[in-house]
């Protein structure tokens, strides 16, 4: 697979992943460029979420998972023994399919990450909360309700809160695992716009079921099928002029 845009940040080489007997990822090799949006598309069970979760080692928690090959971020192998998983996850933030704010106030949700990593001063935390909420385009909506429980907000707001929460620990990479699939079209649009803004500062990797979303938002698109990378190309190229017949079949809606 060729690298499409600028500098490579995530380098995946001959990655194989097994859940017990099941071979979930087969010889995945790709270079994900920094400060751009890379979208993973493909039918359910094709391994796109699995690959996403190898990037912050969330698969570690699933018993029976085995990994071969190399995943390097900024040149450092994240599966080497010296790697501290918590530090890795601080650098690689994640937003999930279902908005999952903690049952705490907006403020405490955002401050959760910074507090974990040892930031205590109120002034410093106030500042982080404000900048994170501003980056997630949520500040104007919630600035008067920072003490209110995060659960009292709408799904779209909760999801942007989760993005703000991820940003608050100052990551390099933001993983979005079907982050809009539980949201209505307007909230989805807001998150997509937000992703566009955030890609100037963060490297974004998103998994999506929605091909149109990938086409609208991403710079590169990767098409997966049965655990294999079928095609990795610039988004425009992949959707207008796919090289592989299977990609064409999928994006034209002939299966999946």
């Amino acid at each position: 697979m060729q690298s499409v845009a600028s500098q490579t940040l995530i380098d995946i080489h001959k990655l194989n992943l097994y859940y017990g007997q099941f071979h979930a990822l087969k010889d995945v090799t790709m270079d994900i460029p920094e400060k751009a949006i890379t979208a993973f598309i493909g039918p359910s069970g094709c391994g796109k979420s699995t690959l996403l979760r190898t990037l912050n080692r969330m698969n570690d928690m699933i018993p029976g998972t085995r990994i071969e090959g190399k995943v390097a971020i900024g040149g450092a192998d994240i599966y080497s023994k010296e790697v501290d998983v918590e530090t890795l996850r601080k650098k690689v933030g994640m937003v999930f399919q279902q908005p999952n704010p903690f049952p705490k106030s907006i403020y405490d949700n955002i401050a959760y990450g910074p507090r974990l990593h040892g930031i205590r001063g109120k002034q410093k935390l106030d500042e982080i909360v404000e900048t994170s909420l501003r980056s997630a385009a949520l500040w104007d909506e919630v600035k008067d309700y920072l003490k209110r429980s995060a659960l009292s907000f709408s799904g779209g707001q909760q999801q942007r809160l989760c993005i703000a929460r991820a940003i608050a620990v100052n990551p390099d990479i933001l993983l979005m695992d079907e982050a809009t699939s539980a949201l209505d079209p307007i909230s989805t649009l807001k998150i997509e716009e937000l992703a566009q803004e955030l890609k100037d500062k963060y490297t974004i990797v998103m998994v999506t079921h929605n091909m149109h979303q990938a086409a609208r938002v991403s710079n590169q698109t990767v098409f997966f099928l049965n655990g294999e990378v079928v095609e990795f190309a610039e988004t425009e190229k992949l959707f207008s002029n796919p090289r592989d017949q299977r990609t064409e079949d999928y994006i034209s809606g002939r299966f999946g």
Partner: peptide
């Protein structure tokens, strides 16, 4: 999701349990 959210922010298992 709640636990995963905490782990994804770099929390250890103990931090997740008591926070």
């Amino acid at each position: 999701g709640l636990k995963e959210g905490s782990f994804a922010l770099g929390a250890t298992r103990w931090q997740t349990i008591y926070r």
